[in-house]
Nucleic acid binder design. Structure first.
Lengths: 204, 204
DNA sequence: GAATATACCACACATTTGTGTGGTAGTCAA
DNA sequence: TTGACTACCACACAAATGTGTGGTATATTC
């Protein structure tokens, strides 16, 4: 664990964290001083150095507004839900931290699809869910893919035929999680355009 | 729509966007100049003003490293999946943009729970899903809540008894999405500790 | 042909901002 | 009681950074 902070040091760190999280722009030394009523910039600089030494902040020499949080404890604490018992909020039971910014960087090979229909309801993909998709024309067995069947786009499991049926052609087929939809062989008319890497649902 | 940008203007904007998204710190005018090989800071300033006038950037007077993207087009484009037809990647069909940073700010009244069991599978909440939960002891009818049943934490729908059964006590009960679990009345031993506002699933 | 926009350069200037040196006062452990 | 760490102040300085004024050349539009 990181060294403990004093009350005052925590206050300073919290102010900086708030500013970075809310305004996306690091405060300057004088802005910190202004907030706390310090009449000297040196005071703030001393705090920054302590916070840096204790591993909570990264300072960049001679760079304006360049404070960076190196707080692994950013984001939302992920607490495990034990099958029998209340969620454990104790420090030891935190499994990790959910950091929205770190889930994925926006990039050209990612896009986001809004799910329609109930063909994947059995796999927990409901109508309206947002699917983060990586563009790729290949995928592994059992992965969830976005495929173009003729002219229609669908989300399905990509499955390989059992070994016993080797030599079969095509080797892969698309399977819905909902039994009422039938399997679809992967042929020339059926192309994988991406793989679902994440599902996001928001309740209003 | 926003005014169009020239090729060069786009390049400058892209550079700034990359820097902000990757380093989290806005570049200075001179850093932009350096990247493009401009020998004058005025050149960059002119670009910034154009980008600001056209509505892509926010400039803050006399503030170092304070460029802000006011690009609604940040993040991942959300394209609608038309029931019959390929996903529409055309500009007009983009329904919005997925901005991880904007989903929610880390705050004290939010936490994240890792789902266990299959009691909510019917509502698309699978084992291992991350549930973003807002701490609250009240909730509306039909919302998905985290409740403490005696000593055990569960995720369930909060339902109100039909009007016909008015006067009944308790008024609310907890219902699993999976039929094999039975309803649980909300009593003193059963307290709501939060509401599920979002579900996130990542495939490895 | 004049007006407007793009795409740059040069350079001075002022402000913002981080840094350095030195000091006061209190606490707490060795 | 010496040495550390905390919690501040004062002030000077230099580096980083945004801004202002003015210029050149090439398009495009009215």
């Amino acid at each position: 664990m990181k060294p403990d902070l004093t009350v005052r040091q925590k206050q300073v760190l919290n102010f900086i964290r708030d500013r970075i999280n809310h305004d996306r722009i690091s405060p300057t030394i004088r802005e910190v001083a202004g907030f706390f009523g310090f009449s000297s910039t040196g005071t703030v600089r001393d705090y920054l150095q302590v916070l840096s030494r204790k591993g909570y902040l990264k300072l960049n020499k001679n760079k304006a507004r360049s404070l960076e949080l190196i707080n692994q404890e950013q984001g939302l604490a992920i607490v495990g839900m034990v099958a029998c018992g209340k969620p454990q909020f104790a420090q030891e039971d935190i499994e990790g931290y959910l950091q929205p910014e770190e889930w994925f960087k926006a990039s050209d090979d990612l896009f986001c699809l809004k799910a329609k229909g109930d063909s994947m309801a059995g796999a927990g993909i409901m109508e309206g869910d947002l699917l983060v998709v990586r563009r790729q024309s290949q995928a592994q067995n059992n992965e969830i893919v976005v495929a173009l069947i003729g002219d229609e786009a669908t989300v399905k499991f990509l499955r390989r035929h059992k070994d016993g049926k080797q030599g079969r052609d095509p080797k892969y087929f698309l399977e819905a999680a909902n039994k009422k939809y039938s399997d679809i062989p992967v042929t020339e008319a059926t192309s994988v355009i991406g793989r679902v890497i994440s599902v996001i649902r928001k309740y209003v």
